[in-house]
């Protein structure tokens, strides 16, 4: 199962859960799985974040797939200068 790590702002919606395992192997399913598990965690809140899949930061991961042993980290979108 892929491991998901929530940043502190998303933990507000997960009841302080920082880390969770998911069965999804793509982003679309991941969003559905997470918002199903944590009703407060809306799709909108999730989509405000970039997703790091095994260390690769993806600004808009809409079509991304990953492996069942992947590590997924939600990551606040950052502006450069």
């Amino acid at each position: 199962m892929a491991k998901v790590i929530f940043p502190s702002d998303l933990q507000a919606f997960t009841g302080d859960t920082a880390e969770v395992e998911v069965t999804s192997v793509n982003y679309r399913d991941l969003v559905a799985e997470l918002s199903g598990r944590y009703p407060a965690l809306t799709e909108e809140a999730i989509r405000k974040h970039a997703l790091a899949i095994d260390g690769m930061i993806i600004h808009n991961p809409f079509l991304e797939a990953f492996n069942s042993d992947s590590e997924l980290v939600f990551f606040a979108k950052i502006a450069g200068g």
Binding site: I5, P7, A52, D54, G55, I57, E71, V73, F74, F75
Partner: peptide
Amino acid sequence: PLFGVPFQ
């Protein structure tokens, strides 16, 4: 790191 994404 603190922001969670492991370094490559």
